[in-house]
Design a protein around this nucleic acid. Structure first.
Lengths: 144, 144
DNA sequence: ATAATATACTACTAATGTCGTAGGAATAAT
DNA sequence: ATTATTCCTACGACATTAGTAGTATATTAT
């Protein structure tokens, strides 16, 4: 069970945008440089995030990307599933008819439990939470 | 984030063995037939489970596989990690030095939270629990 | 107008991992 | 000996990932 860079990069890019709220559009190359991601690859990830409605873009000079909603309104689970696909992908938990044993299958029960545990974490966190956490971390570091 | 058939098959095979405790060795082809898995593929999975110490085998005619420990002593997390690798694989959660931003990275915090949530579920379930669940299910079905 | 700066879009590719298939060797029971 | 079983290694088809590359399009600045 591995987390793709697509998801990791995408969420880090969203976090950059969340921290940039109120300061106009942020350019791909800035995000890419700060997060150490290939510009061209990030380009494709932003296309996914845009078509999913999480970000909006401004083309041309002085353009860039912005969050489409307030950070407090975007849950981690939304973006995660958009990039990574369904959490803990097992056919049988989604498709009752995928397997004849589904009704009796205790393994299937476990996969469902896992799914719920992961979703509970991701649904409990918004991008605003992450922005706040970052501020806390930085404040702590200055103090030291 | 996808669960491999390796893990799903492996755990289902272990469950068959757990339900067979006290009845001598169980043959690959029996497990494969009951769980609808390719014998040859399961063959390889059993090799992994054996070298990890979860099952032991008896070669030759009338041979087969048995659990190496009591079902109550085998946690799902043990077998899961053996087959699937570390839960929610992200380099930076294991390797502090993987990324320079690690100390300040809130994304990394989230991955750690996910990891812990998944492990908590898997560590709380033993194969004995699964055997019991199966019995409950069957009892319920007879009743209906 | 023209140049510069950005996003938008499409196509391609190298590497990797998954999910098997295949064939035979070793071992034990009958 | 024959049969049944695990054990071991090699191979292959397929899908996915993580990019690279090039071009088109939109907007701003000069």
């Amino acid at each position: 069970m591995r987390l793709s860079t697509r998801t990791r990069y995408g969420i880090r890019a969203m976090l950059e945008l969340a921290e940039n709220v109120g300061r106009g559009p942020l350019q791909l190359r800035i995000i890419a440089r700060r997060q150490d991601i290939s510009v061209k690859y990030l380009d494709q990830l932003m296309a996914i995030l845009k078509s999913a409605g999480f970000v909006r873009s401004i083309r041309g000079s002085k353009g860039g990307y912005m969050l489409a909603k307030a950070p407090v309104q975007i849950k981690l689970s939304d973006v995660f599933c958009c990039l990574e696909g369904p959490v803990v992908t097992v056919e049988c938990t989604e498709n009752e008819n995928y397997c004849a044993r589904a009704a009796d299958c205790v393994a299937r029960q476990v996969w469902t439990q896992l799914q719920e545990a992961v979703m509970a974490v991701l649904q409990s966190i918004t991008f605003q939470d992450l922005v706040d956490r970052t501020k806390d971390k930085k404040a702590l570091n200055y103090q030291i």
